[in-house]
Design a protein around this nucleic acid. Sequence first.
DNA 1: CGACATATTGAGATCCATCAACCAATGTGG
DNA 2: CCACATTGGTTGATGGATCTCAATATGTCG
Lengths: 188, 188
Amino acid sequence: MISQLDKINEFIARLDTETLTVLNRISVEKIFKKGDFLLRQDEVCKKSFWVVKGTARKYYLNDGKEITTELYFDNDIAISFDSYCLQKPSREFIQVLTDTTISQTDFSSFQTAKQQFPKLAILDLMMTEYYAMWLEDRLFQFHTMDATSRYSKLIQDHPYIVQNIPLTFIASYLGVSLETLSRIRAKK
Amino acid sequence: MISQLDKINEFIARLDTETLTVLNRISVEKIFKKGDFLLRQDEVCKKSFWVVKGTARKYYLNDGKEITTELYFDNDIAISFDSYCLQKPSREFIQVLTDTTISQTDFSSFQTAKQQFPKLAILDLMMTEYYAMWLEDRLFQFHTMDATSRYSKLIQDHPYIVQNIPLTFIASYLGVSLETLSRIRAKK
DNA sequence: CGACATATTGAGATCCATCAACCAATGTGG
DNA sequence: CCACATTGGTTGATGGATCTCAATATGTCG
């Protein structure tokens, strides 16, 4: 996991100024207010959202209940993956949880830029690989760990999470009910 | 999901003969006997394995117990993802479950070929995207469906699976005990 | 046939969801 | 500035889903 992030960061650090300039040119910084949506269900995810500063979550509705699939902090990138790749309506919502600064990049601009600047294509692949590894790890946790262990791992990886994200969303992200999470926390 | 597969298949169908020739040149077909390993834990995954004909599974050990993470059939591609991407020791095993024909492609040959034939790089990205979408869907199932529903979906998607794969592996793949799967099946 | 792998069935324990009541902090309108 | 609503979290009681352990059954293959 960490290694892939290292790879990406190193790659970015070595990018030529021309490529960086393009990246900058096709990105727009914008501030969103707490509760604002970056993306709603049924919309096509036409932008990628780089969280410059703030917090956000991605979720979908299942039987009318919200299932949180991802939590975002500074420097994370938020997209609805299949909606973005296939430019089809999203099942997911993306919502900022605090006032948040976002640098958004247009999908089609990025596709065009990739053709002219092959390093962007390589970057795209590396970030997709990273996402797949992240998903594998998450699946591993669901496959092998009970709720208590998953919670422990979460606060170990993101100690600041509890102060910043309502427990309701954390519980949903961990795949347990709010009540169960509350009891897990009480026990320690 | 299906749409991404369509995209990939269409892309392959339109590949120029030169690119196809290269792909062929760096691939080797080989037959493995039931029970053979394509990859063992702690080895680096230096090849991708295209299942031409047969069945295989990927799994890892957790507390000495085997956890099956993926089942492969004709035309599936088997790799240990992070081991392959980062060329680091694998946590997973890949084993064929029947006598199986595999077309294996060397990692470094493919990396080299990608540089000369940009379409291979595009293909690489599309397949990685497909894998990420597949993982998202699997996570979705673990997040929202109980064991019975997951089993129903599996046999709906792969009706032939039950005849070809021992229940032990299917149970593990579904994240339930063999006993529970047996009871689920008995109930219908 | 015998042996080993694979699958079924039963009983008890455990984890977790659900429903419901309650509490604490925050915010808002009069 | 108070009364009350709202949001977010806790706690208790109960039931359901699933696991584990153990016994039994059913292959399947040399």
